[in-house]
Amino acid sequence: MLPRQSPPLRGGEREMLRAYLDFHRSTLAMKCQGLTDDELRRRSMPPSMLTLLGLVRHLAEVERTWFRRVVNGEDIPLVWSGRGDFQEAFDLSAATRSEAFAAWEAEVAHARRIEREADSLDVTGYVARWEAHVSLRLVMLHLIHEYARHNGHADLLREGIDGTVGP
């Protein structure tokens, strides 16, 4: 993952969406730096299954679903669930940093390629659950929202693990 860079203050729509999405991706990676597998598996508070490692796995599923399955129309299963259950990403019984980050980074690479190859932000894909076509623009905005929300969770999780706070 690239080091976190602040998004530009001015730019075109696509450049800004790309920069903000990458900023949030890098923020998640930054919140996990320097932690052991056990620390990454530490739950926020039982009975919640929320962990930093679970967030990384969940966001790999999100990247895969929105970019590969929706925008690119690929007929592929989720990373950790053949049944389409997003919650299985939070089952950390056999999860490690290396497998979670490898999957997440691979899905981010696919997403970046799909976005860069798209003719415009108006390219559409079909969301079966919504029974609607959505634009790449909406997908990028949705992912920015998803990462921003989960990075808030990551802030609290990291503070609870070792007291680290900050951007």
Rank of each mutant, 00 (worst) to 15 (best):
M1R: 09
R4Q: 15
R4T: 12
Q5C: 04
L9F: 15
M16C: 02
R18I: 09
L21T: 06
F23Q: 10
S26F: 02
A29L: 14
M30T: 08
K31R: 05
C32K: 08
D37W: 00
D37P: 00
L40H: 03
L40Y: 00
L40E: 04
R41Q: 13
R42P: 02
R43V: 14
S44M: 14
M45I: 10
P46V: 08
M49T: 14
L53V: 07
R57E: 04
H58A: 01
L59A: 03
L59M: 13
E61G: 00
T65H: 14
W66D: 10
F67L: 13
V70Y: 02
V71L: 13
E74M: 03
E74G: 00
I76F: 07
V79G: 00
W80H: 13
G82S: 03
G82N: 08
R83K: 14
R83L: 10
A89C: 03
S93W: 11
T96E: 09
T96D: 03
S98C: 07
A103T: 07
W104C: 06
E105A: 00
E107Q: 13
R112I: 05
R113Q: 13
E117N: 14
E117C: 14
D119I: 01
D122M: 04
V123W: 13
V127K: 08
W130R: 15
W130L: 15
W130K: 15
A132E: 14
S135R: 15
S135Y: 12
L136P: 07
L136Q: 03
R137A: 06
H145R: 02
A148L: 10
N151L: 11
A154L: 07
A154W: 05
D155E: 04
L156R: 12
L157A: 07
I161Y: 13
D162T: 09
G166K: 01
G166Y: 05
